[in-house]
């Protein structure tokens, strides 16, 4: 039995990763400077992982997520999805943004969720059924015919998540999706997201600057150093979730992460 487990483990780790970031350096231009956001970043993401990019503000974690989505091209290194180099945005990597205005205001909630599917050639009936199904999963069936401006911030984010998941992308990219929410709503949304993952098992890449959120959401965390971002560590934390928040292990891990990120400086949060 133990042998089989080992073999299974060996097989999963040796199989080619779903998404691979290999020596990626990213730069962007401001009016005055050419800024290096990340420097030679490498990591692999396996199927079904809840992969968290964690780092202080300005470490380039959002930038690297945008590069995975295809909005930016690395100046060095490459990003591959299922062994194909990422060139440009596409519906195989749906993204959920931090901003509430990511929904199309001229479409109802249901149309918003169905629209990406319609764009990609899925029939109206099929798209509608999948949209309603996705909305049911985020408990928004009642609001299918509402327009986005009638929803609260948290509801808008749930619609955005439903929209992304209805597409059944290879990987779901989330850029600090809960950063603009109040603490109570954020907790609720984290619970929902983890429940959804239990149901579906999608591959998730999640960017956050909150250590606690990273440990709760993630199964594996990549720590990025401050500007320019470099990989500081990769940590497993699948065993720690919302229920373990009060446990000593949780506190020990957040303490360790905090220490690695800030090199022992006494920084709040």
């Amino acid at each position: 039995m133990a042998l089989m487990m080992d073999q299974a483990l060996a097989q999963t780790t040796s199989s080619s990763p779903l998404l691979s970031v290999d020596g990626v350096t990213l730069q962007y231009k401001t009016p005055d400077h050419l800024v290096t956001a990340t420097y030679r970043i490498s990591f692999d993401i396996q199927r079904h992982e809840r992969f968290v990019l964690l780092g202080p503000s300005g470490c380039g974690k959002s930038t690297i997520l945008k590069a995975m989505a295809g909005f930016l091209y690395p100046v060095e290194g490459c990003i591959t999805l299922k062994n194909h180099v990422v060139d440009g945005p596409g519906p195989d990597r749906m993204m959920v943004f931090q901003e509430f205005d990511q929904l199309l205001p001229w479409k109802t909630v249901e149309q918003n969720v169905a629209y990406p599917m319609r764009v990609n050639g899925i029939g109206a009936q099929d798209a509608k059924a999948r949209a309603l199904d996705a909305l049911a999963k985020v408990n928004l069936s009642k609001f299918a015919d509402a327009y986005p401006h009638m929803l609260s911030g948290g509801m808008k984010q749930r619609v955005a998540i439903a929209r992304a998941m209805a597409m059944k992308p290879d990987v779901l990219l989330m850029d600090e999706p809960y950063a603009a929410l109040d603490a109570l709503t954020r907790r609720k949304m984290q619970e929902e997201l983890l429940q959804l993952w239990e149901d579906i098992g999608f591959t998730l890449v999640f960017v956050t600057h909150s250590i606690e959120e990273a440990v709760v959401i993630g199964s594996r965390i990549v720590l990025l150093s401050p500007h320019p971002g470099q990989v500081r560590a990769e940590i497993n934390c699948a065993h720690l979730g919302l229920n373990e928040r009060a446990s000593p292990e949780f506190a020990e891990l957040t303490g360790r992460i905090s220490h690695m990120l800030f090199d022992g400086q006494n920084v709040a949060h």
């Binding site: 909005f71 596409g90 519906p91 993204m95 943004f97 205005d101 990511q102 199309l104 990406p116 764009v119």
Partner: peptide
């Protein structure tokens, strides 16, 4: 038109 909406549209493959 906000950058977020543009990026959202492009992730749909538009």
């Amino acid at each position: 038109v906000s950058e977020t909406l543009r990026m959202a549209g492009r992730t749909f493959g538009l």
